[in-house]
């Protein structure tokens, strides 16, 4: 057991250390999230009722786009410098360190979004009671985005125009997460309760945790071949 955890812990701690040393990139992703959210009032007008209505959707779409923005970094550096080959040659199962990499990536790029989102929600005058639901929906939903996105990132590794291709591949897959994530907040605000949405997001997280790393590992093997 501890032997299998060795590579997992090694990859997780290294990627977190790298995220810390390259924290400018992380901050750019976060700044992008904030700026996109702040653009919407300029586009649709500052009418408070309208802003309140669209807030969950706006926050979720912005979170989704900033996730997308950072996805291509997930394997690109390791692919370029040969680390990926070494990782594929570790005796332990590939999915282990794939999960470690995705976890580190989410902690570095997804978690900050979850933390910042309530503050942005206040800019849209979202009822304070709904902030908890917003945090919860993002905390459950953004890991799904990272897991699904990792498959796309692995498939488009090293391709010309990979970034645009990645967006085309994963955005349709993100739609259910968007629906249930933003829907959770909407449902809470409309008084029907967010429980069903959050449960579905939780189920989606478990399912993608079980399946996406497998697809991602297979895609990585193909990418280095």
């Amino acid at each position: 057991m501890s032997r299998a955890l060795g590579p997992f812990a090694a990859v997780l701690s290294r990627d977190l250390l790298l995220a810390w040393r390259g924290r400018a990139d992380v901050l750019v992703t976060l700044a992008f999230f904030v700026v996109v959210v702040c653009l919407f009032p300029f586009g649709v007008g500052a009418e408070p009722n309208l802003l309140r209505t669209i807030a969950p959707g706006v926050l979720w779409v912005a979170a989704l786009l900033s996730t997308l923005l950072s996805l291509h970094r997930l394997f690109a550096q390791d692919h370029a410098d040969g680390t990926l080959e070494q990782l594929l040659l570790t005796p332990e199962p590939t999915v282990l360190w794939v999960v470690a990499k995705i976890s580190a990536h989410w902690i570095a790029t997804g978690l900050p979004l979850v933390v910042v989102a309530p503050g942005l929600a206040l800019l849209f005058d979202v009822e304070q009671g709904a902030l908890g639901v917003l945090i919860l929906s993002l905390a459950l939903g953004t890991p799904i985005l990272a897991l699904l996105g990792a498959v796309g990132a692995a498939l488009t590794l090293g391709l010309r125009g990979g970034g645009m291709l990645l967006a085309l591949l994963v955005l349709p897959l993100f739609v259910p997460v968007l629906i249930f994530g933003a829907g959770a907040v909407d449902a809470y605000l409309s008084g029907s309760g967010a429980q069903a949405h959050l449960l579905l997001l939780g189920g989606g997280l478990l399912a993608s945790l079980a399946l996406a790393p497998l697809a991602c590992a297979a895609a990585l093997r193909i990418a280095v071949e």
């Binding site: 790298l18 040393r21 410098d81 680390t83 080959e85 070494q86 570790t90």
Partner: peptide
């Protein structure tokens, strides 16, 4: 792979470490 050590063309170094 437990018995194998492969050192390829790329030195598999991360510049930040």
């Amino acid at each position: 792979h437990r018995a194998l050590l492969y050192l390829g063309h790329a030195p598999s170094l991360n510049d930040l470490l």
